[in-house]
Design a protein around this nucleic acid. Structure first.
Length: 475
RNA sequence: GGUCUCGUCGUCUAACGGUUAGGACGCCAGGUUCUCAUCCUGGCAAUCGGAGUUCGAUUCUCCGCGAGAUCACCA
């Protein structure tokens, strides 16, 4: 059996969003699963669309997700270069083979003339076929005009790893352009040459190419080479509509998810399970699980909608199962500014308290700020509280004074705090919902916070008591 | 308009032609002496429609309907 060699071949025209990364992920998984090679190739044959910095961005995105490639533009490999604009002579050589065998010819028409043909077909509600206008005696090709493939229309049936058995009639086969008048090859031509030269065993790509496959098959035949196995994955759709997920609809750069504090492992798990499952009820797949269990024939044929809530849940699940010290290194850049003057031990303790409620790292500041700085008194926390708003200012003051008295004698370890808070419940004959809420609000000024005793223990006596006092003063 | 593809809870998805159509996210309710979260329990919720084949159809066939892709000197 031939070695597994898969590739990810983006055009450097922008960032990589979740939809785009999926084909890269699948290709990577197959390569790793079979101890094969994963190859990165830049398809930069349209110079007009190229975006400055996109190459670096694409490579950074793959790196961030841990999708390491074995051959590529920056690291080379046995079939270098891995950039199409640096391989023009290869395409010329292959084009000459077709010219020699009579399977390619110069397109004598101007772009405007072809547009006229196209408009005509459209007006007649027909699909446009260039070959209906194929010239009888095309001039010799001198490179100043497009070079077209001379197709041999016929019906095809073929197998797609995801879609299953597919078939089309001869009416979809056409004389597409191999080399543009600027000397660059089209995608349709270049990828076939490169995949053959680079010995790619399996092509994984989005469904926008599905309709072109019969044309590719026709070209493979003209070259007398066997096509690689093909897998067509459906698009990932936007969250609200049925549109393909695209940059225009606000699809986010995968690097933005990393910046927001999503874990690469969670992102990969999420993207993989968007349209794929292993047939069991497992939801969480480690990278190794995915490598072992991934299979193209379990990939869904229809497009999946992108649901960020599910990604959040998954990321939270990964965060929760992380060892604390590992999580600590991950969140280093995400602490609120006020945390800089606090030491490792303090922050580690804080992190331990919020670990189970953290969905992504950039939430860390809002979740932990009150551990590092006194927040301004927010009267609404009491006036909108369904129990506390019923109490008079005098009652509130009494409770806070009682709390102050009890806490001032505490050793401020969790155990002692719990004991004293429980005593205070009996003393004041209050429900926890009243007493604990009040103390929690006074000492945190936050709508939500971790357990009361644990929070107080971290804050310490000085700060806790000062905050209770501040709350009393503000009543 | 031609061609191709797809169609199970709101979302992601399971189900050799035989299941009370399962799981997960989300949502709702309850429990875990405060909030938020976690965890646990329970609940709501789906086979696009119509024929046909069959003892029996989510599954096979056909016709509708809906959705997506494509018909570029873009990939």
């Amino acid at each position: 059996m031939k070695p597994t060699r898969t590739r990810f071949a983006p055009s450097p025209t922008g960032f990589l969003h979740v939809g785009g990364i999926r084909t890269a992920l699948f290709a990577w998984l197959l390569a790793r699963q079979h101890n094969g090679a994963f190859i990165l190739r830049f398809e930069d044959t349209d110079k007009k669309r190229e975006v400055e910095g996109a190459r670096e961005h694409l490579m950074a995105s793959l790196r961030a997700l841990g999708l390491d490639y074995d051959e590529g533009p920056d690291i080379g490999g046995p079939f270098a270069p891995y950039v199409q604009s640096e391989r023009l002579e290869n395409y010329q050589a292959w084009a000459q083979k077709l010219i020699a065998s009579g399977r390619a010819y110069a397109d004598p028409y101007s772009a405007e003339e072809v547009d006229t043909f196209r408009a005509q077909a459209r007006a007649e509600k027909r699909a446009f076929l260039y070959r209906h206008h194929r010239p009888e005696n095309p001039p010799a090709w001198d490179g100043s005009t497009p070079l077209r493939f001379r197709s041999e229309p016929k019906a095809y049936t073929w197998h797609d790893e995801v879609m299953g058995d597919l078939s089309t009639g001869p009416e979809v086969i056409d004389d597409f352009i191999l080399i543009k008048s600027d000397g660059y090859p089209t995608y349709n031509f270049a990828h076939i040459v490169d995949d053959a030269e680079m010995e790619i065993s399996q092509i994984i790509r989005g469904q926008e190419f599905l309709a072109s496959v019969p044309n590719y098959l026709n070209l493979y035949e003209a070259f007398g080479i066997a096509p690689p196995s093909m897998a067509t994955v459906p698009h990932i759709l936007g969250p609200d509509g049925n549109k393909k997920l695209s940059k225009r609809d606000g699809a986010k750069d995968v690097l933005d998810y990393i910046r927001d504090g999503y874990l690469p492992e969670a992102l990969i798990n999420f993207i993989a399970s968007l349209g794929w499952n292993d047939g069991t009820e497992q939801e969480i797949f480690s990278r190794q699980d995915l490598i072992e269990k991934f299979s193209m024939d379990h990939v869904q044929k229809s497009g999946a909608r992108f649901d960020e809530r599910r990604l959040q849940w998954l990321n939270g699940a990964y965060i929760r199962q992380m060892p604390l010290d590992q999580l600590y290194t991950c969140v280093k850049q995400f602490w609120p500014a006020e945390a800089t003057e606090y030491d490792h031990t303090y922050k580690l303790y804080v992190l331990g308290l919020v670990q189970e409620r953290l969905k992504y790292f950039s939430e860390l500041p809002e979740l932990t700020r009150f551990f590092f700085v006194d927040l301004p008194i927010n009267p609404e926390l009491i006036t909108t509280h369904k129990q506390l708003r019923k109490l008079s200012l005098d009652e509130l003051r009494k409770l806070l004074l009682a709390a102050q008295a009890t806490l001032s004698e505490s050793a401020f370890d969790v155990k002692d705090l719990i004991a004293r808070l429980n005593d205070l419940l009996e003393q004041t004959e209050q429900k926890p919902a009243v007493l604990f809420s009040l103390i929690r609000i006074a000492t945190t000024q936050a709508a939500a916070s971790p357990g009361l005793a644990e929070s107080l223990a971290i804050l310490g006596p000085e700060r806790s008591l000062a905050r209770v006092q501040a709350q009393i003063d503000a009543l």
